[in-house]
Design a protein around this nucleic acid. Structure first.
Length: 866
RNA sequence: GCGAAAGUGGCGGAACCGGUAGACGCGCCAGCUUUAGGAGCUGGUGGCCUCAGGGCCGUGGGGGUUCGAGUCCCCCCUUUCGCACCA
């Protein structure tokens, strides 16, 4: 007896033989290989970048070339973008569809460390593998214009961008607390910290003070937010960016210190000062969104890292404060950011003056106040802030209500002196309609007006000003790692920080046998003396290179600018090319990049625009996110072990079937469920198309059939053209494919043989989804290859779309009772008369009077009886 | 906690402005074809009842608006995804 596997192989071989015979030799592998080389040899996928009259830049997010190779999620993303590009091309546009590789970064480096192969060796291997996989997927890439971020000819311009931002004062080095991943041994941007853990290795992230290069993206926060109003992006992506930028409107307030031994009021009068700098220098600055509650600020809380902690702490508290600071510093951020933790903190012994009440209030430190938001200090209003309330209750600090629902205080005689009895320590939630109480002369004012009035009042003494605060932080681009572009800066004893002259770019990343990161937070490049020892470009003296490399997100913040200009060695992007091709017409990518890549690239483009290098300030005309593929009810990921590698599917079914399946399994912009057996539908569909065209060709050659479009087919065709065109425009690929299937079912219903003109538009409409088979069939019906150069997208005639007669549903009291067939445009009277002739309708109308007739022409009639 | 999206047959999913719910596909059923079938073709397929005419129910749950609600409004439940002590 044969063993199971032998039987399987035997069956499979038989199946293939039979399928090939039955389908007139449709062997996807053969067809696809043929057109792949045709495209390659003819340069079908290349567009003349200087002569294109209707340029369409079709961009998709370039991949990180992992060692595992291309996964099905990549292919899902690319196929959806490719279909749109091919559709635009068939509409007659000059579509430029490039691809590249995002090959720098910690991800690549960690993998190299893991397998013990140098990244300079590993990355080209991975890239080659990716390219092999991508070339089989039927994507319309122009392979003469790829981008590899690790190529010195690419990253010289990444460094150039750094220099431009540096010259403009948008890059600065500062000592700052940074997120530190002890496992990756590097700094992480806030965006790379997910719930307190490193986004790559999930190690809890700690804090560390390091001198780092920052891009001042916060300068652009307002514009990055405002432009979201008009750019054409997926709504959810805009929302994500809005939340990330996190605009809060409120005020900055200054609480003067009470100087120990001063004996005075402590409330300096700064009104005589021009700018209030002297007053403010002796005060603690806080940011609040609720200046109206200032009268209820009964204490201040500083972040333990706040620089003035040392200044305000009294001698008797030094020890306790220092201990608390140490405990906080030792805490990982994840722990610290847990919301449901019992609040902790210590009193510093110092006091400040509430500028509104003149009261001296205690200054505490607590880890629930974060140094990296606002000013790192808050005024605590325990009556109206949940967190402050918890804290005040725990440490027995005063709680004073200062706002109340206007309905509740209407009868109070003197709003300035509302005494809330024993219940006064209660937490009062913010409501829409509230007024100030216990707030001196501001009592009784609506909260919003009161807040503004308080700020105005204190502004005279420079103790308050309206302010907008953003959650967004400056972008830390320094990485203490090896695998990235060196930051082009030189430090000189006498000249200070000197930018590398443009002519000296690129600053090449040297080959280092040992590229492991060091725990000390110093880049591996700091061990390469021949790299960092350099002459100062200004004075010629001994100097030292910056040894940090830049963040991968800088590489990807501008790669799309490079694509049309890859051959220019003397400029990052050519002016004429850029004018013709940018901004990007269509950008499709994953939502996981909503706040990282998409925000950074907007910032870089905006900055380059302001510096006169670009004429536009938003990089993408249209951005659409694609959905996520799910398998077995879970997101596809390595950790879940449900990763799907497309190769086996492409081998077994061919790229066309696999593409069709991926696009058919759910709405592209929402994602869907990847299940092996679902692929049978699209497979059969393509075989059916193949057979249909074969039958049409044979019939035509044999002189059979009319060779024309039969009238009943015509309507189906018109409907299909309309539906497919609209759906490809809107990326609704699943329904576009359904419409094509529907049309094929109509063509073949009751075993009929279609004619060539019936089949021709089908082939064209199928081409974006299944390009290889479309090329082959196009050739078989006598078209000149490539279909993408010689076919034009079919159009429909709205007049032909509709039938002369329509079926009208007849409702009685909203319930369907019959349908009647009437001429298009039939009058209410006609339809009603016909409806009442129906036996079933009569039964439901009988014995009652018709009180109303709702008639929607050509759609429905509803008889209301009672 | 805040924000966003989504709950429709056995399954993946359709449904423009409120107007015949379930397109298309998977699976399943029947017939045809085939030496054979895990193949192909044609047709059928939401549930319950049925005197075989049709009837009732049905888009997470409850209410409402309307001649008419998957779609609009209010309340609730569930799931997924972001952001999370953001002052």
């Amino acid at each position: 007896m044969w063993r199971g596997s032998w039987r399987a192989v035997d069956r499979e071989a038989k199946r293939m033989a039979r399928v090939a015979a039955e389908h007139d030799d449709y062997v996807p592998e053969r067809v696809e290989a043929r057109w792949r080389s045709f495209w390659e040899e003819e340069g079908t996928n290349q567009v003349d970048l200087d002569a294109a009259e209707r340029p369409f830049f079709n961009l998709m997010m370039y991949p990180y070339p992992s060692a595992e190779g291309l996964h099905v999620g990549n292919l899902y993303a690319f196929t959806g973008a490719d279909i749109h590009g091919r559709y635009r091309r068939l509409l007659g546009e000059d579509v430029f569809e490039p691809i590249g590789f995002d090959a720098f970064g910690i991800h690549s480096e960690n993998h190299a460390l893991q397998v013990g192969v140098h990244p300079m060796e590993l990355i080209p291997r991975n890239v080659a593998n990716f390219e092999r996989q991508l070339r089989r997927a039927g994507l319309m890439y122009d392979w003469t214009r790829t981008v590899d971020t690790t190529d010195p000819e690419y990253y010289r311009w990444t460094q150039w961008i750094f220099l431009k931002l540096f010259e403009a004062g948008l890059a600065e080095k500062k000592e700052a607390p940074v997120n530190w991943c002890p496992s990756c041994k590097t700094v992480l941007a806030n965006e790379q910290v997910i719930a307190g853990r490193c986004e790559r290795c999930s190690t809890p992230v700690g804090q560390r003070m390091l001198s780092q290069w920052f891009f001042r993206i916060t300068e652009y926060a307002g514009r990055l937010l405002d432009n979201l109003e008009w750019i054409d992006w997926s709504r959810t992506t805009k929302t994500a960016q809005r939340n990330w930028i996190g605009r809060s409107e409120g005020a900055r307030l200054w609480f003067p210190f009470v100087v120990v031994g001063d004996g005075g009021s402590g409330l300096a009068d700064g009104s005589a000062e021009a700018d209030g700098s002297a007053v403010r220098a002796r005060a603690i600055e806080v940011f609040t969104t609720r200046p109206d509650t200032l009268f209820g600020a009964t204490f201040l809380v500083l972040s333990p890292e706040h620089p003035v902690v040392d200044e305000v702490t009294t001698a008797d508290r030094l020890e306790e404060v220092a201990a608390y600071q140490a405990a906080t510093a030792g805490q990982d951020l994840m722990e610290r950011r847990k919301v449901d933790r019992v609040k902790t903190g210590v009193f510093t012994g110092g006091h400040a003056v509430n500028p509104a009440t003149g009261e001296e209030i205690p200054i505490w430190i607590a880890d629930y106040v974060l140094m990296d938001y606002g000013t790192g200090a808050i005024m605590s209003v325990p009556a109206h802030d949940q967190r402050d309330h918890e804290f005040a209750t725990r440490f027995d600090l005063p709680i004073r209500a200062v706002v109340a629902a206007s309905a509740g205080v209407g009868k109070a005689k003197d709003l300035a002196d509302v005494r809330l009895g024993p219940g006064s320590s209660a937490f009062v939630e913010h409501t829409a309609d509230e007024v100030l109480i216990n707030s001196g002369r501001f009592s009784g004012m609506p909260a919003d007006d009161g807040g503004r009035a308080i700020v105005e009042w204190l502004a005279e003494r420079h103790l308050a000003e309206p302010a907008i605060n953003y959650r967004l932080h400056d972008w830390c681009i320094s990485r203490q790692r090896y695998w990235g572009p060196p930051i082009p800066i030189i430090y000189c004893e006498s000249c200070g920080t000197v930018p590398v002259p443009e002519d000296d770019l690129p600053v090449r990343l040297p080959y280092m046998e040992d590229f492991r990161p060091e725990a000390a937070g110093v880049s591996p490049l700091a061990r390469a003396e021949e790299f960092y020892r350099v002459e100062c470009p200004t004075c010629g003296g001994e100097a030292r290179r910056e040894t940090d490399v830049s963040d991968t997100f800088l590489d990807s913040a501008w790669y799309f600018l490079r694509y049309p200009s890859t051959e220019f060695e003397d400029r990052p992007f050519d002016e004429a090319r850029t004018r013709r091709w940018l901004p990007v017409d269509s950008y499709i990518g994953g939502e996981e990049h909503s706040v990282l890549h998409l925000l950074y690239s907007r910032f870089i483009v905006m900055a380059l625009h302001d510096l006169g290098h670009l004429e536009f300030e938003e990089p993408y005309r249209r951005f659409r996110k694609h959905g996520l593929l799910i398998k077995d009810g879970a997101k596809i990921s390595k950790s879940r072990g449900n990763v799907v590698i497309p190769d086996a599917y492409v081998d077994r079914y061919g790229a066309d079937t696999f593409r069709t399946y991926l696009m058919f399994l759910g709405p592209y912009q929402e994602g869907g469920d990847f299940r092996d057996h679902g692929i049978a539908g699209p497979e059969r569909f393509l075989y059916r198309v193949w057979d249909s065209v074969g039958a049409a060709v044979a019939a035509s050659a044999g002189g059979q059939g009319s060779g024309e479009i039969e009238p009943e087919i015509e309507r189906a065709l018109q409907r299909a053209i309309k539906k497919v065109s609209e759906d490809l425009e809107g990326l609704s690929y699943n329904t576009a494919i359904a419409a094509l299937m529907d049309y094929v079912n109509t063509l073949r219903s009751e075993g009929r043989t279609p004619s060539l003109p019936e089949v021709r538009p089908l082939i064209i409409m199928l081409a974006p989804v299944a390009p290889h088979i479309a090329e082959e069939l196009w050739e078989r019906i006598g078209g000149e290859p490539s279909i993408f150069d010689h076919a034009t997208w079919p159009t429909y005639d709205p007049a032909k779309l509709e039938e002369d007669e329509v079926d009208i549903p007849v409702q009685v009291n909203g319930k369907l009772r019959a349908t009647v067939r009437v001429a298009r445009g039939a009058s209410r009277e006609t339809v009603e008369e016909l409806a009442l002739r129906d036996e079933n309708v009569r039964r439901h109308v009988e014995g009652a009077t018709i009180r109303k007739v709702v008639h929607v022409p050509d759609r429905l009639i509803n008889l209301v009886v009672g």
